[in-house]
Simulated assay, not measured.
Amino acid sequence: MYKLYIGEGLSYEYELVESRVRVPAENRVLIVVAYGIKITAIDKDGGEFSQVYDKISPYRDKVEQLVDRFAGLALSPYHLYEVLDDIVEMYIDDFELYAFDSISDHSYRSIDMAI
């Protein structure tokens, strides 16, 4: 997690978040770990505003790079969806590729269940 002090009593926190997503693959459904980003703005009075984009990619390193990049740019939570809408287009196939790779090499890495 990153914490940036923006000034005038305002700070931003950037976090990697984890959830699960169902991915159809061949004749089954896999439950795959999904990584996302949470950005929280905290004002001097302790008020908070957060935005979460929770299913960006099953590849942790890709999402960690985004967290690093957004923290380096001091991206506001108010702009998270605007920025990620364009980026997520590049990652749209990650879940399907991840599921099929896991099935083909029988590794089932980071997969909770195959139904």
Rank of each mutant, 00 (worst) to 15 (best):
V83Y: 04
S19M: 10
D85K: 12
V17M: 06
R109N: 14
Y81H: 12
V63K: 01
E26T: 13
Y2D: 08
D45H: 09
V29F: 10
R28A: 11
A41D: 13
A74R: 11
V83C: 07
Y35F: 14
Y91N: 07
S104Q: 10
I92N: 08
G9N: 05
S57K: 06
I56G: 07
S76K: 04
A41S: 14
G7Y: 00
Y14T: 07
L30R: 01
V33H: 10
D54C: 06
Y12I: 00
I87H: 02
K62Q: 11
F95A: 07
R60M: 11
Y14R: 06
I39V: 14
Y53I: 13
D45K: 14
F95D: 04
L4Y: 00
Y108T: 03
Y81K: 14
A41G: 10
D112Y: 13
V29K: 08
I92E: 14
A99R: 03
H106T: 10
Y78K: 10
E64K: 15
Y81W: 07
E96M: 03
I37W: 00
S104I: 03
I87W: 04
V88A: 15
I42R: 02
F100Q: 03
V83D: 01
Y59A: 02
G46I: 03
L16V: 11
D43W: 06
L66Q: 03
L80T: 08
D85W: 01
M1D: 09
E82H: 13
E18P: 00
D94C: 07
L97E: 06
E8M: 04
N27S: 14
P58W: 01
L80I: 10
S102T: 12
D93W: 01
F49K: 12
R20A: 10
Y12V: 00
D105Q: 07
A34G: 14
L66N: 02
Y91V: 05
S76F: 03
D112K: 12
V52S: 02
D54Y: 01
K3H: 08
E64C: 12
A99D: 05
D86P: 01
S102L: 05
L84D: 04
D112T: 09
I37R: 00
Y12M: 02
D112C: 09
